[in-house]
């Protein structure tokens, strides 16, 4: 008889076991998906400390609502839904200077002045890492665009999965993705030119 280890068990089985009172099954789920949730939170919030707190809150909230998980989407998509809602709530509630300036400028479709300065080639050379520039450019996107870009390009989710996670129509997700890329293209122009010159 084949023994099924915890690592090989499907999410649905682990959820069922958790609901039956086996805490170890939920521990496996946490270990399985904490990195994906952390990365979504890190790119959304911009720093590791807040991302760590958000990972904990996400899994706590998921545990509390596990009985309502209907399994019409994957467990990871459900986690992303919780995490993205928490991220957006946190960003809105803190009202940091960073978020305020973004909301004021990017919601109207204008380019932030500070961002254009930070994307100058000299600045890029000082920072030395394209990833940092991209990270900061994503940070400067409005929340609703940021989450779509992160889910699409960092978490490799399809448009349909993103739509499911964010409770949005597929067309809206595509539109957000297009607008986000357009904004990023403007802000990453020096990087793109550098890449083009490199080729």
């Amino acid at each position: 008889m084949r023994t099924v280890s915890l690592l090989e068990q499907t999410d649905a089985m682990l959820v069922r076991q958790t609901l039956c009172g086996q805490a170890n099954a939920y521990n496996t789920l946490v270990q399985r998906y904490q990195r994906q949730v952390y990365n979504l939170a890190y790119r959304m919030l911009g720093n590791a400390e807040d991302a760590g707190d958000l990972v904990q809150d996400t899994f706590l909230r998921a545990y509390g609502a596990l009985a309502s998980f209907r399994q019409d989407a994957s467990f990871l998509t459900w986690l992303y839904k919780i995490a993205s809602n928490l991220c957006i709530d946190l960003l809105r509630s803190r009202k940091t200077r960073y978020a305020l300036s973004l909301d004021a400028e990017t919601d109207e479709g204008r380019e932030p002045a500070a961002d254009s300065r930070s994307s100058a080639p000299e600045e890029i050379a000082v920072r030395g890492a394209v990833q940092d520039v991209v990270h900061h450019a994503i940070q400067n996107l409005p929340e609703r665009y940021r989450v779509v870009v992160i889910m699409r390009h960092l978490n490799d989710m399809s448009v349909e999965e993103i739509a499911q996670a964010l409770d949005l129509p597929t067309g809206t997700v595509k539109t957000h993705l297009f607008r986000a890329r357009e904004m990023l293209r403007g802000r990453l122009r020096p990087v793109l030119e550098m890449e083009a010159d490199g080729k």
């Binding site: 990195r35 994906q36 990365n39 790119r43 394209v130 990833q131 991209v134 990270h135 994503i138 870009v149 390009h153 960092l154 890329r181 990023l184 293209r185 990453l188 990087v191 793109l192 890449e195």
Partner: peptide
């Protein structure tokens, strides 16, 4: 742009 975005690592 898409290629640069895809360079984002976990």
């Amino acid at each position: 742009t898409v290629a640069v975005l895809n360079t984002l690592a976990l």
